[in-house]
Design a protein around this nucleic acid. Structure first.
Lengths: 344, 344
DNA sequence: CTGAAAGCGCTTACAG
DNA sequence: CTGAAAGCGCTTACAG
C-alpha cells in the first residue's frame, strides 16, 4: 500500500513524470533541456515528445536552487520616465522564470546599501539603466563583489564589459535627412541637456545630416529636455528670420513645448512649420497634432540585456568577452511633420 | 580532513549558519522567522541576534520550493498607460523575493492561452489590472483552475473575492469642493468614457459636490478620455455663457486638451480659467502650466494587492473571506488652478 | 517549546 | 551516451 505522501507537490508535472514517460532518467531529461551534454538522437526525440505531451514546464525556483541558473537579477532605477521604466520591466520580465528584485533609492548612498542587501539575498547580476550605470562608486562596489552587470545606454560604453545602447547619432541623422527630403532647408534644432551622451550624439547626427545635404545648420537653441525649457527656446527659434520650416527637438517633451509655442504664435503645424521629437514618449501620441518622433527599442534592449547577463552568469568566467550591442531606432511619422511650405 | 565540497554554495550565509551561531536547530530559526509556531523568548532573541550579526537573508527560491510560499504571481496587462503599468510593477516588485511572470497578449483568447501556460509553470496567483479583471471568460478560467487572483480597480468589485480600488467618487467630490472653495461657482465638467466605472463615479462625485454647495452643475460635455476628444469639447465649454471660471476634466489627457483649447482662445490659465484633471499622469507635470490633478496611490494598491494574494495563498482555504480594500486619492495642486477671477 | 528526518524539483559532480 | 547519488536552502509533517 502506498503511504500518503508526506508532502504535497507544488507542481503537477515534474521532470520525474517526463522521465518515466520517456523511459529514461531525470538526468537525461535535464540534459536534453539544457543541451549541455550529448544525448542520443532517438532518446532526445522521446524526451521531447514526452515534454510536449505532458506540457511540462520546468520550475524556475528548483533550477535556481540546484544550479545557480535561472538567476535572480537586480534592477536599479533612478527616477526614470515611467514609460521608460515600464518598457524596461516588460522587456526584462519576458524571460521566463526570471526573478527580478527592484530597488529605487533616491540617493547614491542608499542605492549602494540596497545593492549590498540584494547581493546578500542571492541576486546574481544587475541591470543598470541610464544614469545608474554611470555611477563609478556603484560600479566599484559591483566589481569588488564579483557580481555581473549590464549597462543600458551608458554614457561611456567603454566602462562596461556588457552593454546595450541605441544609435542616437544615426537616428538623429535619419530624422534630419527625412526632413530634408520633405523639402525643408532651414531646420532649427533644440539641443538637450549636454550632460547626457544622448544629447550630444543627437546634435552630432543632426549636424552631419545638414552637412551631407549641403545645408547650413539652422539656428541651434539650448533646452534642458523639459517642456518648459523648450517653450522659450522655441519662440526664439520661430522668431528668427528667415523662419525655420521645421524644428527638430532632442526629445518629445521639448517637441510638445515647441508645439505650444507655435500655437501661441498662431502658426499651423505642420502647415507652417513641421515639428519632430525623439523618444516616442506617451506625450508624443497624446498631443494634437500627434508628434512625429524616433522610437527606441527599449523592451528589445532590456530583453537582450537580460540575455547577455544570463549567458555571462552561466559561463561563470571571471572576465567574459565584452559585448556591446547596438540597437537601431525607428522613425514614427505622425501628424506634426509634412512637406515644407514652399513645396506645397 | 575535509573532502572538498561536492557543490558550491549559492549563498554565503544560510539558515544553517544562523542556527549554529545561535546554538539551535535550523527549524527554530525558520520558526522564528515565520512566527508560525511558538519559540521561547530567550531562544528567539539569540536567533534574531545571530540573524542580525550574520546579515542573514532568506533565499526566496528555497522557500518557494520547500513550502509553496514566496509564491510566483502572474500579472496580466492590456495596453495600459505606461505610467500606470510601471507604478503597478514597482509596487508589486517591492515584495522581497516575489517572482512575477508578465503576460500582455493583445486579445482575450491569447490572454487565456498565456494564463494556462503560466499556471502549468507553477504560477500561484494573478494580479489583474483594470479591464483584464473585467473579462468574465478569464475569471471563469481562473475559477476552474482553482487559482487565486486579486482585481485592481475592477468595474464590479462584487465579482471578486479580493480587490483593491480607488475612491473615484470621493476624490472627484473633494476636487470639486476645492474649486468651490477657491471661489468658482460655474465649473464645467468633461465626462470620460462611460464604459468605465471610474468615469461614472467621477461624474457623480462632481455632481454631489455641486449640489452640496448649492450650485447648479456647470455645463457637462462628453469626451472619450483622449486629448483630442477634449479639445473640441473644451471649446464648447469655453464658448458657453456665462463663461466657466473652472474646468474639471475626468483625466489628465483631457485636461491637457482643455489647456490647449484655452490657449487657442487666448485665455490665460489659471488667470481667466482654472483647469484641473485626474490621474497625475506624466503629462500633468509636463505641461506648462503644470496641471492640478488627483493622484492615485497605484504603487500602494499594487503592494496591498500582492499582500492580499500572498495571505490568501498561504491560508490555502478554498474560499478565503472576501477583502475589498479601498484607497484614498490625494489632491496635487499645481499651477493650472487658482482663485476665481471675481475673487482676485 | 525544540529537533531529526524527509522532501520540494532540479542540476552537478562522479561513475560507468 | 546514460544513470544513481548527493545536495542547493528551506519548510512541513512527525516526535518528543
Amino acid at each position: 500500500m502506498t503511504g500518503r505522501p508526506r508532502r504535497r507537490a507544488i507542481q503537477e508535472v515534474t521532470i520525474a513524470h517526463v522521465a518515466k514517460r520517456a523511459g529514461v532518467s531525470g538526468m537525461t531529461v535535464s540534459r536534453t533541456l539544457s543541451g549541455r551534454a550529448p544525448v542520443g538522437a532517438a532518446t532526445r526525440e522521446r524526451v521531447l515528445r514526452a515534454i510536449r505531451e505532458l506540457r511540462y514546464q520546468p520550475n524556475p525556483a528548483a533550477r535556481h536552487l540546484a544550479g545557480g541558473r535561472a538567476p535572480r537579477f537586480g534592477l536599479l532605477y533612478v527616477n526614470p520616465s515611467p514609460a521608460y521604466l515600464s518598457e524596461l520591466l516588460v522587456g526584462a520580465l519576458t524571460q521566463e522564470g526570471l526573478q527580478l528584485a527592484l530597488a529605487g533609492a533616491a540617493d547614491a548612498t542608499g542605492r549602494r546599501r540596497e545593492v549590498r542587501a540584494m547581493i546578500r539575498s542571492g541576486v546574481h547580476a544587475f541591470l543598470l539603466p541610464p544614469s545608474v550605470c554611470d555611477d563609478p562608486k556603484l560600479l566599484a562596489l559591483l566589481r569588488e563583489s564579483g557580481v555581473r552587470w549590464v549597462a543600458v545606454s551608458p554614457a561611456e560604453p567603454a566602462d562596461h564589459a556588457l552593454c546595450v545602447y541605441v544609435n542616437d547619432y544615426e537616428a538623429a541623422r535619419t530624422m534630419t535627412a527625412r526632413l530634408v527630403a520633405l523639402g525643408h532647408h532651414r531646420i532649427g534644432f533644440i539641443v538637450g541637456d549636454l550632460a547626457y551622451r544622448a544629447a550630444i550624439d543627437r546634435r552630432e547626427g543632426y549636424l552631419r545630416a545638414m552637412a551631407d545635404a549641403g545645408l547650413a545648420p539652422g539656428p541651434l537653441v539650448r533646452g534642458r529636455f523639459s517642456f518648459r525649457s523648450s517653450v522659450a527656446a522655441s519662440e526664439r527659434l520661430l522668431d528668427a528670420r528667415p523662419r525655420c520650416t521645421a524644428i527638430f527637438a532632442s526629445n518629445d517633451d521639448m517637441a510638445a513645448g515647441a508645439l505650444a509655442a507655435a500655437h501661441r504664435r498662431g502658426l499651423r503645424v505642420p502647415g507652417d512649420v513641421s515639428i519632430v521629437g525623439f523618444d516616442d514618449s506617451p506625450i508624443a501620441a497624446t498631443m494634437s497634432p500627434a508628434i512625429t518622433t524616433v522610437r527606441q527599442p527599449i523592451a528589445a534592449m532590456a530583453r537582450a540585456a537580460v540575455e547577455l547577463l544570463a549567458q555571462a552568469v552561466e559561463a561563470r568566467e571571471r572576465e567574459a568577452a565584452p559585448v556591446h550591442q547596438r540597437f537601431d531606432c525607428a522613425l514614427v511619422e505622425r501628424e506634426s511633420s509634412g512637406p515644407a511650405a514652399s513645396q506645397r
